[in-house]
């Protein structure tokens, strides 16, 4: 098999997952699946960045409590978020005594972290435990990439709503019923989309690139999976991806394909235009909803393709197009 997709040789399992969802997310269609729902997105702190940091930390602590591990039992934490210099993640790690590697892949961070962790666990002979976690916050992302919250602007029909929340996953070799079977790391793809509001459009080619490489390397058809789920392409992005895949003779309409950004909000009542985005979008949907379905046994094989638009405020002002990346992880019930 080419190096592009890595099939894990040993049993790498998901030990447990945790989710913390913000107020808007916990009113959405997946509300009953989250571990914890926040009523206030500032948490009584002085800034939204600190609040996001607290949410991130709480998700990891919740995961530790659930699994009865102490921070000292964890060998590594691979985590990230959207803020400059990973403000939220770095500050969350101050109080957790866990070795930590920050990672940034925009909204694709979760998939990248899982793929990395799975590879490390696969290669290790010892009993290792790695936590992958991501967070995002609507208010910190708006400030980072867009306008002040109180500015009276109109959202374009292509806009997406950054998910507030955090998701964490424990990966190990010993416990768990869901196996990580193979991973495909993404390549940066840029087809010249310049509209910073049209992130789905920018990310669809990257998702297609990673998916096709995954299918070719593993000699599988999309039908092999009971569910193929992309990160945060949104309604239009998912449509574009289907079209791109169809043109390359992979018909996603024949499979159970959906998008985390589409699932997390109700488009009609919650005024989110294209759906959710942000690293926490795929983390919340996968941890709360897809993982539960895998455990129940209603689906057996899942391909998670987290997608990220690698845009920066500066590149946007310099009129550059938007590079995008997508990482695929294949999960299997055992």
């Amino acid at each position: 098999m080419p190096a592009s997709t890595i099939q894990l040789k040993s049993r790498v399992l998901i030990g447990a997952v945790a989710t913390l969802a913000g107020p808007k997310e916990s009113q959405g269609p997946l509300k009953k699946h989250f571990n914890k729902a926040l009523r206030d997105d500032l948490l009584g702190l002085t800034s939204y960045e600190l609040a996001e940091s607290k949410i991130h930390e709480s998700a990891i602590r919740y995961l530790l409590n659930k699994t009865n591990y102490m921070p000292q039992d964890i060998d590594l934490c691979i985590a990230g978020d959207l803020t400059d210099e990973l403000y939220a993640t770095n500050f969350a790690m101050r109080t957790l005594e866990i070795p930590f590697v920050g990672s940034f892949g925009a909204c694709a961070t979760y998939g990248a972290a899982i793929a990395l962790a799975a590879r490390i666990i696969d290669a290790s002979v010892f009993k290792q435990r790695i936590i992958c976690s991501v967070s995002s916050h609507f208010s910190t992302a708006e400030r980072q990439f867009r306008f002040p919250l109180e500015l009276g602007t109109q959202r374009t029909p292509l806009a997406q709503w950054t998910v507030t929340g955090a998701g964490a996953m424990l990966i190990n070799k010993t416990e768990g019923r869901i196996r990580i079977e193979s991973v495909t790391f993404g390549r940066v793809v840029d087809w010249g989309v310049k509209d910073a509001n049209n992130m789905g459009g920018a990310m669809a080619p990257a998702a297609m690139n990673t998916m096709i490489r995954h299918f070719k390397d593993t000699r599988r058809q999309p039908r092999y999976y009971d569910l193929i789920i992309t990160g945060d392409l949104g309604h239009t992005g998912a449509l574009l991806l289907k079209q791109l895949m169809y043109e390359r003779s992979y018909d996603l309409d024949q499979t159970n394909y959906t998008d985390c950004g589409v699932l997390i909000f109700d488009r009609e009542t919650q005024k989110v235009e294209q759906g959710g985005s942000g690293p926490a979008c795929s983390a919340l949907v996968f941890n709360a909803y897809v993982y539960k379905k895998l455990l129940e046994g209603s689906i057996g094989r899942v391909l998670l393709v987290t997608t990220g638009a690698l845009i920066s405020k500066t590149s946007c002002l310099q009129k550059q197009s938007i590079p995008a990346i997508a990482h695929a992880v294949s999960f299997e019930r055992i």
Binding site: P157, V188, V189, G192, G201, N209, L240, R248, P323
Partner: peptide, 24 residues
């Protein structure tokens, strides 16, 4: 097939977006 299509302006794709994307 995938080589050389990582970074280039794909006019056909940009046209597709124009068709599919919802308008204001």
């Amino acid at each position: 097939m995938l080589a050389g299509m990582m970074y280039m302006e794909d006019q056909r794709y940009l046209e597709l977006i124009k068709q599919r994307a919802p308008k204001t």
